[in-house]
């Protein structure tokens, strides 16, 4: 099962990245589909929503997922640092609920560099850390063209330390395991949009 992801969406190894917005989890799932081997997903135990492997199946094989359930954010960061530094896993996704301090962000960045692995933090909107390499704002978009199975999303690159910012509409093709960049949907369709 080969996965095709355009180069601009491939996260740079040895760096930490951040994703925020309502579709951050799908961003992480697609990032995980792009790497080989197992990946670790760190989340705090008290969060009620849980990842559904049957939904994850559309992006990748859920058998590759390891889940670390931690008590609080400090533990989450410690686990993420340990895993990043080790380098046995290519990708470590961490769900964060509070902003990172400068030291914390930098530590994670150094750990990722040491293990040349990819760190991806799923952060609440607007609480990014300075040390991160890129930050993505991801939100789902209604797709009037597609029938039922659409995963149309808008990905905005809102911070990039080594390149330019950007703005794309993407759609995941579950059958071909491919991320397609599509031309943006024009204006919101239909007259009902203004009513909401």
């Amino acid at each position: 099962m080969t996965t095709t992801i355009p180069d601009m969406f491939r996260l740079r190894p040895g760096r930490t990245h951040e994703a925020c917005g309502p579709a951050a989890a799908s961003f992480a799932a697609i990032a995980a589909a792009g790497v080989t081997g197992n990946f670790l997903w760190v989340r705090e135990r008290w969060v009620t929503g849980r990842l559904n492997p049957l939904g994850l199946h559309r992006f990748l094989d859920p058998a590759r997922l390891l889940l670390a359930e931690v008590a609080d954010q400090t533990e989450a960061l410690a686990v993420a640092e340990e895993a990043l530094r080790d380098g046995a896993l290519r990708l470590i996704v961490t769900e964060l609920s509070q902003p990172l301090s400068l030291t914390q962000g930098r530590r994670l960045q150094l750990a990722a560099q040491a293990g040349s692995s990819i760190g991806l933090g799923l952060i609440p909107e607007g609480l990014g850390s300075n040390a991160t390499e890129t930050r993505w704002l991801c939100s789902p978009v209604f797709d009037p063209a597609e029938k039922a199975d659409s995963t149309l999303q808008e990905w905005k690159l809102i911070k990039n330390k080594s390149g330019t910012l950007g703005h794309w509409h993407v759609r995941w093709d579950a059958k071909a395991h491919r991320l397609d960049v599509v031309s943006p949907v024009g204006e919101r369709p239909g007259p009902t949009a203004s009513a909401g």
């Binding site: 197992n38 859920p62 997922l65 889940l67 080790d86 046995a88």
Partner: peptide, 27 residues
């Protein structure tokens, strides 16, 4: 070798958060 490396990592994480808190999904 890769599996051994992953096991070691899991052990180290396990000493911090408890080995039973590293989970995986089964159908």
């Amino acid at each position: 070798a890769d599996a051994a490396r992953l096991d070691d990592l899991m052990t180290r994480i396990g000493t911090r958060i408890g080995l039973e808190n590293i989970r995986r999904f089964l159908p």
